[in-house]
Computed example of a mutant assay.
Amino acid sequence: MEDPYTVPYKGIYAICDEDGKKAEIIEHSNCYGGACWSLHHYAKSPAVTNARAVGECIRYSVKIGPSTLELKSSVAAAGIESVICDDSKNEVQITYMGIGGGGIGATKCRAYADGVLRYDISEAGGGKTATGKIFVPKRKRVLIAIDDTDSCDEGATWTLTHNIGKAVSCEDAVYLSQALVQLYPVPEKTQNCMSTVLEFGCTTDAAKEKLIADIKELLLKYSVSENTGMLVYSGFEITDDLKEYSHLGRTMRVSREKMLETAQKNHVDIILDGNGVIGAMAAFAWFAQPVESVKPEFDVNSI
């Protein structure tokens, strides 16, 4: 073993809001047990407003700016001290602290992750208290909602969209999550009536535009349906209108007119305008919530 006391994260990414007040730190772990230990302790940091696990990823909602982090062995043994955005460099500086093994996690494990531009770390291990600063690109959240890529004879939207997400993922437009969304079953459904939302973190507007073009090209190439819908929403948080539309789409039949009205009011771009856009619009509200999104909202006994 080259370094038996280091388990580098697969990737660390920072999604920032438009006002420079909030961010989401997404850490893709290589050791789920260690990541869960971090989740437990980091959630107590003053900078962290919410923390949750989504598969192998731990997602921390944080306040941008400095904070005072007080560590205590076995109780609050590690945490996020600060998250600072540098708009001039389009970078985010994240400062971690930890005691003992938590110090290893705060320094080398995160410093060596994919997505880290550079780092400044202290000595760690044993009984030391360690500090690690990492610098990562500042990213904006881009959501791609897709529905109706299959037919009664072949295909599956969830597999195609995931494979497309992996195929187009790159340093400037990283694929972060997929959620499958259970819709209200309508007669036009192929079988299970599910739509999909993909989440990406883009570093620039140019990266976003290339991402959209690449996904559109692959959908046109591989979709076996003439009704494929593809929508794009860019924003740190989901609007109330999109949440309301999602509830409608998961409990009743929704008209195309309602979808068009919602798209216009919420700055949703229609990239492919097949009838799948009606179901696709209902998927945005469930990004990065794959456990909850598959559960029906409609009365299953009424179907």
Rank of each mutant, 00 (worst) to 15 (best):
P8T: 11
K258S: 14
D147R: 02
P296M: 01
G249Q: 00
C85V: 11
S234V: 07
K133W: 04
T228D: 07
I15D: 03
A76E: 13
C202I: 12
L219I: 14
L211Y: 03
A124F: 04
K243Q: 07
S255T: 14
A282N: 07
T49L: 04
A213S: 15
G11A: 08
I278M: 01
V116M: 02
A78P: 00
D273P: 01
K221R: 15
M259F: 09
K189G: 00
S255P: 12
D241T: 02
V197A: 08
D273I: 03
S88W: 07
I25C: 05
K189S: 04
I58M: 03
V48I: 07
G201M: 02
N301C: 06
T239L: 08
K44T: 11
M194K: 10
T129R: 04
C36F: 10
R52Y: 12
Y175C: 03
T204I: 06
I84F: 05
G65L: 12
S302F: 11
P8Q: 11
K216G: 05
K166R: 15
S73Y: 05
R253P: 03
A145Q: 05
H162G: 06
Y42P: 00
A145S: 15
I121L: 08
S225E: 05
W286H: 12
E24P: 03
G55W: 14
I146K: 01
M252H: 10
L183P: 04
G249D: 06
P137C: 12
Y42F: 10
D114V: 00
V268E: 09
R139Q: 15
E171M: 10
T107W: 01
C57Y: 06
C57M: 14
D3K: 11
G79V: 00
E188T: 13
D214R: 07
H247K: 11
I25S: 09
K10I: 11
E2M: 10
E188N: 14
I121N: 01
L218C: 02
I144T: 00
N301E: 13
R139P: 09
V168F: 05
V268H: 09
T190A: 10
I271A: 04
T204Q: 01
I278Y: 00
A179I: 00
A113D: 07
I12R: 07
G229I: 05
V294F: 12
S67N: 09
Q93T: 08
E237P: 06
Q191C: 12
I121V: 15
I94R: 02
D86F: 12
E56D: 15
I26D: 00
A282I: 08
C85I: 04
S74L: 01
K10T: 12
S234I: 07
D269Y: 03
V142T: 12
V92E: 10
L211Q: 01
E91Q: 11
E257D: 13
P185Y: 09
N275W: 08
I212W: 02
M281T: 06
C31V: 07
E257L: 13
N90A: 14
T251N: 04
L39S: 01
M1H: 11
D240C: 11
S293C: 15
L248Q: 09
N90T: 12
E292D: 10
